[in-house]
Amino acid sequence: MADPKDELPPRRRGQLRRAWDAFWSPTGVLSTGFLLIAGFIGGILFWGGFHWSLELTNTEEFCTSCHTMETNLGEYRETIHYNNHSGVRAICSDCHVPHEWQYKMKAKIMAVKDVYHELLGTISTPEKYEERRLEMAAAVWKKMKATDSRECRNCHAFEYMDFTIQEARAADSHQKAIDEGMTCIDCHQGIAHDLPPGYLQEYRHVVETLAQTERGGRERQIDVAQIKTYLGIEAD
């Protein structure tokens, strides 16, 4: 007598399982050359598409497409980085997104928090925005101080400055900055957005926190003292 199990139709395997097996099976119809060329072209298309999409997220239109970015945009449009005699414009990504690949990717991944807070409505009203302004500014200052104002230096460099055609005050300040090892953000905190009340104390706090956490604390303490002197704040 036949085993009843033998009479059952063979169990159909799931589509996912079959696709997985097919993915790992040797191809019987494609040559190695075909697979290599197809893989190479596919890689170029994928990488080009990825990079293109990434660049789209660097545009001003993309950055300011969220409702909460309207305040920043309005302030920025009043600054020299938006309109100036030379016709060179720095957009959001020029100051907030690094050029170097790994830091750019890091910035893009970390920017997910901006989408999260947009959805939560953390700064959805002018009142909420003002409440958080100092905190948001401090986060950017911290990043800029820690990276020696990396994004500023994509366009600006002390080495390229002609102090003879700068205003006397600017030339003196830049010379002092070189002599004392300061960085752009030490003086230019409000270069593109309005400054909140108490910003100087907050900046001092940012500098001190960084000095404590970074290696080579001793060197940094000297730096903090110099900045305090420059800002006209009494050293502790």
Partner: peptide, 13 residues
Amino acid sequence: LLGGSHSTHVAIS
């Protein structure tokens, strides 16, 4: 090779 940046001299952590 890729850490740091071309314009600053921040140590890689």
